[in-house]
Write a protein that binds this DNA or RNA. Structure first.
Lengths: 227, 227
DNA sequence: CACCGTCAAGAGCAGTGCTCTCGGTTGCGT
DNA sequence: ACGCAACCGAGAGCACTGCTCTTGACGGTG
């Protein structure tokens, strides 16, 4: 392939750029990410980078989708379909936290305040849903195996809300109770809140042993969803 | 007071600067906040602003503390000590969400990803704790009035974790069960996660009626803390 | 071999945070 | 009551940013 040698070196250089950008992201954060700095690190002119990424935002978008992919992969790897559902759920939650702690700036890029003037394109949506899909699969398997107890109709109006959540959590598992989906989405929000609080330093004076705190919190949440 | 006329105009100009900064914050976000732009809006040279705020970060710090104060005041105003504890708790949660929706950029500044290279000084800590104090007071009153049921010792090791959380949630109410404090902190994290998910657009495809979603979610959480 | 697309480089524009210097004013202590 | 000192605003300037445009060179293709 004559043309592909060109494409090969282009793909390699693109990878080098994203790698350098990720490195710089870990140092100065998302808002401080400088296209010129990554060019400097790679020893080329800043204008040359624009041959590969038409704008700084597009580079950021790439980092975001890559981040979602990495987080989703971590969640999928942590899910052992042979384990009991409760352990599966907890393992996924722990994997998400571990990934967040290992890549705090990337996590902040994904779930922190949106970059002003930057709107995440639609490309990011499927990648972002991967973690939710994993959690939904755990719930669906639990429901099929009967591990998930049928929730009493104690909720006031589940059907009116859960219809929209079905697309994300357990969408392919109609066996899932509406109330369960709802609580699962709440648990996902709570997981996000717990991790963000820890990472963004909002419980520095409140909790000393964050590892144990996370375990206890997840124990409460997994009970909330019914596992 | 001869000296205070100078101090007065200084205080007024400082207030004008912060007001203009808050206005700009609502438009372009925290990272896009430009010291030159606020100077332009006020019709003065950019260098003059440095007489009042030694750096852009110090201006940001002021906006942060002001934001925590406003949020804390909103939470305190929403708390009616005469109402039943469950309603008090829900009212505070609703007030926090309302304030966040009314001031999304300020909320993002407070609870979003930390600005890179900027470390929140210690001044922000007491202001940040006001909402937690309100929630703690509700729990403490509930415990004293007997509305808060004594939680069974079903938790594995509450005393090891809750000791550190006491400083924030219900610190002045030793009657509070350790497990309750723990769940309160978890509920506060979940509240934060729920609001952030909504504000940061992480459930655009999942939940359509965010108002009802929030009500249902808070209904679950208030049950979690035992109210 | 000639050609033409692709690429890196550099200059340049508008904007940023921040520093410094320059006058002018204001207020306090002597 | 006067002079000194602190304060204040304006402007120029530095180093940096994202981004655009033009220039020139290299290399795969017909």
């Amino acid at each position: 392939m004559p043309t592909s040698v060109r494409e090969r070196v282009r793909a390699e250089l693109t990878a080098e750029i994203t790698a350098a950008a990720r490195r710089q992201l870990a140092e100065v954060g998302a808002a401080g990410l400088s296209l010129r700095a990554v060019a400097r690190e790679l020893g080329m002119a800043s204008s040359a980078v624009y041959r590969y990424f038409p704008s700084r935002d597009s580079l950021l978008t790439r980092l975001i989708t890559d981040g979602y992919d990495a987080l989703g992969a971590a969640a999928e790897d942590a899910d052992d379909p042979a384990a009991p559902p409760r352990e599966r759920w907890l393992a996924v939650c722990r994997a998400v936290r571990s990934w967040a702690r290992a890549h705090p700036h990337e996590y902040a890029l994904l779930y922190g305040s949106p970059v002003p003037g930057y709107a995440a394109p639609r490309d990011t949506v499927p990648a972002a849903a991967r973690v939710g899909v994993v959690l939904g699969r755990v719930l669906g398997d639990a429901a099929r195996s009967g591990t998930l107890p049928a929730t009493a109709g104690d909720h006031r109006d589940p059907e009116l809300v859960s219809d929209e959540t079905a697309a994300v959590l357990g969408g392919e598992h109609p066996a899932l109770d509406d109330a369960v989906r709802l609580r699962a989405l709440l648990a996902w929000s709570a997981l996000y809140g717990t991790i963000s609080f820890e990472l963004f330093g909002h419980l520095v004076g409140s909790v000393a042993d964050t590892d144990r705190w996370f375990e206890v919190a997840m124990g409460e949440l997994v009970g909330l969803v019914g596992l």
